[in-house]
Design a protein around this nucleic acid. Structure first.
Lengths: 228, 228
DNA sequence: CCCGGAACTCATCAGGTGTTGAACTCAACG
DNA sequence: CGTTGAGTTCAACACCTGATGAGTTCCGGG
């Protein structure tokens, strides 16, 4: 009988099961949702400490499990990280939601959707991803390739931007949103951290709109001027 | 005479001085610029690996020096980090450069100045700061307090923004720039990473201008609407 | 009922970490 | 010359890390 709540977001420090079975070894009775528990603990730990700071031992105890079991399921720490980041990331969905609808309202729509995701349960994974992506070089590379292949190559044609200006437009908008996320959810600098999300939509939406569909002729003039 | 190889780490890239003095202990002859060498190596290491990833041993060998010497000079790793980040940061100067001049051109001026710093020698320290600030919780807290006390409290009155909207305006502008820095210098996502800086000035300048001095009445309408 | 394999733990390895205290070398001063 | 003190290194401590392999317990299918 497992009357305990799912280990989802909250941390439970110790293995609370078995006040009877004091520290048995071997296979656990009951349903094997342990794998998910490990993943949840891993997401939380990566979000709090980043890739390097999160230790397999901490993740294991956070899931009420022996450290070796983590390796049993996921092999190495790298694979654990990839597995933990995989589920909550589906940029295709976000891009689709962006693409249909009034193009002249895509900016605010994008900002609102972005903030909804970060305010929801996916936010922890986002913080983890950002923390880890920035932390060290190989995660940065990972993130870079992820951004290019999963976001840029899909978003540019979906949004109907021509290939000349499209990538710059999308990266400008994305980098703005990442900056907002960093300030609001990771660094938590006020007043940005606690202002209602609709305020940010109203403030940032027009900028993003301009990056996506606005007139950037000055920008490209500057580009050719610098290129000559 | 110690002709024996080093026990622990194996090779040190060695101090280039003294090809004569095969591995002597004790004080080095010549100039005592070692402290600066350590600081420089520390900045580089922190920029490459972040606070946690950069090890004192790596910093020491990078400076051609024994790890214990680092502690001799700086005490703990925390203090080393603070010392390494101290020199290249002078936000007051930047704020001053922003404050005087046409207020209606402050946006592009800010972006240009910001990019100049990051493209110059201060960029490494910036990357280090950003990497480390995001990496773990206490550096994030450090960074947050630094931002609030050193930037917000100075910039808001200097720029002549009223206290009601000022902090939000400044944090919006700053977070945008941090996002750009993250994408361009840390993650290095194309095309943002290699585009000439004037292109970014032309693209981002107007947005920042709007955040600083533009009409944000919609934003504050949203604020009161959400607050009710 | 039994047995193969999945779930799970224990003990341990090899290596890296920040930090410390003592020892040594050199430059400067008297 | 001798002494002093800063510059510098050595060797070690205590701890934490990711990873491995052997061993234990349980579930499900034959």
């Amino acid at each position: 009988m497992r009357d305990v709540a799912l280990p989802g977001a909250g941390q439970w420090p110790y293995a609370q099961r078995g006040f009877l079975m004091a520290r048995r070894t071997g296979r656990r009775p009951g349903n094997p949702d342990t794998r998910e528990a490990i993943l949840a603990a891993a997401r939380g730990a990566f979000a709090d400490k980043g890739y390097d700071g999160a230790s397999i031992r901490a993740i294991a105890t956070g899931a009420g499990v022996d450290p070796a079991l983590v390796h049993h399921y996921f092999g190495t720490k790298d694979k654990l990280f990839l597995a933990a980041m995989q589920a909550p990331m589906d940029p295709a969905e976000m891009i689709d939601a962006l693409a249909d609808g009034d193009r002249e309202q895509a900016g605010p729509r994008f900002v609102r959707l972005f903030l909804q995701i970060w305010d929801g349960p996916g936010g922890a994974a986002g913080v983890a991803l950002l923390r880890s992506a920035v932390g060290t070089e190989w995660t940065a590379k990972l993130f870079r390739e992820f951004v290019v292949t999963q976001i840029l190559r899909r978003a540019v044609p979906k949004l109907g931007l021509d290939d000349e200006q499209g990538p710059l437009r999308v990266t400008l908008a994305a980098s703005h949103m990442v900056g907002i996320a960093l300030a609001r959810y990771v660094i938590k600098v006020e007043p940005l951290a606690s202002v209602p999300s609709e305020v940010i939509v109203a403030a940032v939406g027009p900028s993003v709109q301009r990056y996506l569909t606005g007139d950037l002729s000055d920008v490209f003039d500057a580009q050719v001027a610098a290129g000559s």
